[in-house]
Design a protein around this nucleic acid. Structure first.
Lengths: 96, 96
DNA sequence: ACGGCATGCTTGCAAAATGAAAGTGCTGCG
DNA sequence: CGCAGCACTTTCATTTTGCAAGCATGCCGT
């Protein structure tokens, strides 16, 4: 299987890359991610579990019964790919 | 909606980025894409239609009743994002 | 101590996307 | 004419995604 296929097994499912993008700005709590992304709550919970299992992010306990989600080094390494995709979408017909 | 979300509307669905990756090596025929990617044939047809509508690729008529699929300039511009994702997957725990 | 509230999920079920398998239409070739 | 190869389409099962409601935990005010 190609490297790209391997990457897509982890960040291919819907919402996964968008979650990582939000976390590039720093750790976020569950409710914040949900509100800012508009993700269905069950999907958000599922994706966070999968991304944690893949070593992309980890749970960061906070006060009370709250926690935050933060990127691991492996998660932070997605920044290049995310900005590349964002730039592609932002580029109009392209500099001829 | 963020740029990333816009990009994922086009290349987010399953197989889409893998199809583009194969076409980076030059135009390919339908049967070749199917055999090399292992894509279900109905999905391949659907994705090719969507990617053509999005201006990522175009049909290139060949002899007889055959045709090839080739990337537009916009499709070629995905190379950076594809290699970034591929590199991410290929990188082990990362250079500490 | 206890009820209410915020946060972070889980559960049940409907809708949409994906997949497997078989079938269709066209074209050239013998 | 009949057959084979290519490019799909169609049908139906399975998986993924989404919506809405419910549950668990822990603080906070009274």
């Amino acid at each position: 299987m190609s490297d790209l296929a391997t990457a897509l097994e982890i960040v291919g499912p819907r919402w996964a890359l968008l979650i990582v993008e939000r976390l590039l700005d720093g750790p976020q709590r569950y409710g914040d991610l949900q509100r800012e992304l508009g993700t269905p709550t069950n999907m958000l919970a599922t994706r966070l579990r999968e991304l944690e299992a893949a070593g992309v992010l980890y749970r960061l306990p906070l006060k009370h019964n709250t926690r935050a989600y933060a990127l691991t080094e492996r998660g932070l390494a997605l920044r290049a790919a995310i900005t590349a995709l964002g730039r592609w979408a932002a580029d109009e017909i392209g500099p001829s």
